[in-house]
Design a protein around this nucleic acid. Structure first.
Length: 232
DNA sequence: ACCCAGGGTCATA
DNA sequence: TATGACCATGGG
């Protein structure tokens, strides 16, 4: 295992030690995970919670119900999550595919590569949304790369922030091994860490940044070495 | 008033 | 391959 690979695992251990288990994804059903994955695209989760609550209140938190809604009605329900016109189309496209394939039980029988390819073919489902769904709805060992992963990873000097999505995903998967439970927890911890320091920006020089890095570099006895020294 | 959030698509070079 | 515009709400 390369230094980089062991460093990625060390970061996980320290995040877990600091924040504890995150119990992700915050949803009651696999289908709700899928809906949330679309709604949270470039959107704060607190906004998504509002939209999901509205859908549940309306009795429309199912593929059949979402498809039956008039676009204008659905748009009104998910309005708090922003991009409501686009997300209305995306949600209904996802539901149409979901039902056409026979729903969750049928899809669960698919091999992961096929499932991923088919998800990516849905209009409005990109790599991160597809991988959120694969990991948290279908429990497949797929590592999710998001903006937080890029930011934290690059600050630690462990990855290139602008590298292609697939490159980074394979980097994590090869470093950690295909472990669904680990992947679920790791991604959730990255988001937890980012949220804890959501005001930290690359140009910041203040104490928040020191704490942000300290969680990963100095909370344990073992140093991160060169990777740790590379932070900002 | 300004920045940005758990992205993705499309047009352009 | 790689930028940039665009989508839209609401919290800090």
């Amino acid at each position: 295992m390369s230094n980089n690979a062991s460093a990625l695992f060390l970061v996980y251990e320290r995040l877990f030690a600091h924040y504890g288990p995150q119990h992700w994804w915050p949803a009651q059903t696999p289908f709700e995970v899928m809906v949330g994955a679309v709604l949270t695209q470039n959107t704060a989760w607190s906004r998504v919670e509002r939209a999901i609550a509205a859908l549940r209140q309306h009795g429309s938190l199912s593929a059949e119900a979402l498809l039956a809604l008039e676009p204008q009605t659905l748009g009104e329900l998910i309005r708090p999550a922003g991009y409501y016109t686009i997300k209305t189309r995306r949600l209904q496209a996802l539901c149409q595919w979901y039902l056409a394939q026979g729903g969750f039980a049928a899809l669960q029988g698919w091999e992961t590569p096929r499932l991923r390819t088919e998800l990516l073919a849905i209009h409005g489902v990109g790599p991160e949304t597809a991988d959120d769904i694969l990991l948290y709805a279908f429990e497949r060992p797929v590592f999710v790369i998001d903006a937080y992963t890029r930011r934290i990873g690059s600050r630690l000097g462990l990855l290139e922030a602008k590298a292609p999505y697939e490159t980074l995903r394979q980097q994590f998967e090869q470093a950690l091994g295909l472990d669904t439970v680990l992947f679920k927890e790791y991604h959730a911890l990255i988001v937890a860490h980012a949220k804890a320091f959501c005001r930290v920006r690359p140009r910041c020089q203040g104490c928040m940044l020191v704490q942000y890095c300290a969680v990963l570099c100095h909370c344990g006895e073992r140093p991160l070495g060169e990777a740790g020294a590379a932070i900002d």
